[in-house]
């Protein structure tokens, strides 16, 4: 069976709507009858990544591929890239600004959390060009 494909744009300048696309994907998965735990894992991982895009990278786009046995979310931005992936994967390490922290984010849990909730996480990043995240959650 061909996977169902969805494409989303993420605006980089509007924190108030950040996460709207994750909300849409969560709704789609619920309508398709996926089990609640799978839905929750996809929603949290995608939401963290979507917030990252808004906080760090001025937006980008997201492609979601939904198959009966797995959900794949690919997020591509044209942001600054991640200079030190190893550090970024450590819990508590963050480069977020104070204004982001005041909004309740930037605790350095984003990437570790995405890894925790997904079955596979591939990060390709080039400093000055952007970052591509491929998140897979097996059903």
């Amino acid at each position: 069976m061909e996977p169902m494909k969805y494409h989303f744009e993420v605006k980089g300048d509007d924190f108030s709507v950040a996460g709207e696309n994750s909300s849409k994907v969560k709704k789609i998965l619920r309508q398709l009858g996926f089990d609640p735990e799978t839905i929750r894992r996809v929603a949290i991982a995608m939401y963290e990544a979507e917030i990252n895009m808004v906080i760090h990278a001025e937006g980008g786009y997201i492609d979601a591929e939904i198959s009966p046995d797995k959900v794949k979310i690919v997020l591509q931005d044209k942001g600054p890239g991640i200079p030190d992936i190893e550090k970024a994967m450590q819990e508590g390490y963050s480069t977020a600004t104070n204004s982001v922290r005041e909004l309740g984010f930037g605790a350095g849990m984003g990437l570790p959390n995405i890894k925790k909730y997904s079955d596979d996480l591939v990060i390709n990043t080039v400093v000055g060009e952007g970052t591509r995240l491929e998140i897979t959650v097996n059903v």
């Binding site: 950040a18 909300s23 939401y47 309740g104 605790a107 350095g108 849990m109 570790p112």
Partner: peptide, 28 residues
């Protein structure tokens, strides 16, 4: 960030933070 990382089961959220992302986080 910590709610997303540490809350395990369907909990009630007490918070003093006031912005739309609180509702979005709860939804997720």
């Amino acid at each position: 960030s910590d709610v997303l990382a540490f809350v395990k089961d369907r909990a009630l959220l007490l918070t003093g933070l006031m912005n739309p992302q609180v509702v979005r986080t709860a939804e997720m």
